[in-house]
């Protein structure tokens, strides 16, 4: 296989935030980059590209996964949800509102990845204890908040039934 051949695009159908997209992608394109550059869904952030920081986390069939460690071609047939897909047409989701109330973000770089991860946690376990929230949060790095307010926000959202 020559480089030119490998660089050819393939047609894929991606299901993102409930919408169907037909796209031409190179096999080497990461899901994170296709979400951002092809679909303009720029809330999904890219920090480390090695799975460590969690900023690129999206939901794949409802489960948090790293979009920097998945090829866009691999997402075919899966339902991908980004934080845009969790945000109502007007206003904020209850979890987002709790983040605002509890000052759970400063620069916001980590926030989309954390929101989708915590949304998945609360769907699986609507009333987590603090240790469970911290364990689920351990895969998302935040350089600003010190995490305490994030934990507060998630517990508050859980208490209010989101």
């Amino acid at each position: 296989m020559s480089q030119a051949e490998a660089r050819q695009t393939q047609r894929v159908v991606l299901q993102v935030n409930g919408q169907r997209h037909e796209l031409d992608v190179e096999p080497r394109w990461l899901l994170a980059d296709v979400l951002r550059h092809q679909l303009g869904l720029t809330a999904t952030h890219v920090g480390c590209e090695q799975g460590v920081c969690g900023a690129c986390t999206v939901l794949v069939d409802g489960k948090p996964e790293r979009s920097c460690l998945m090829l866009a071609v691999q997402a075919e047939g899966c339902e991908v949800t980004t934080v845009e897909g969790l945000t109502p047409a007007a206003g904020l989701s209850p979890l987002q509102a709790a983040f605002q109330q509890h000052h759970a973000l400063q620069c916001g770089f980590c926030t989309p990845g954390i929101l989708v991860t915590m949304e998945a946690l609360l769907r699986e376990n609507p009333h987590p204890d603090e240790a469970t929230v911290r364990e689920a949060l351990s895969g998302n790095v935040c350089r600003c908040t010190g995490y305490q307010f994030i934990v507060d926000a998630v517990l508050a959202a859980a208490k209010e039934g989101r």
Partner: peptide, 24 residues
């Protein structure tokens, strides 16, 4: 398979395979 070790190596170009066979 999961790509959780291979894709970081690809992203840093430490692995340069000519083709990937997806087991998923």
């Amino acid at each position: 398979a999961g790509g959780q070790s291979l894709i970081p190596l690809l992203n840093f170009r430490m692995a340069r395979p000519e083709a990937l066979v997806d087991l998923n």
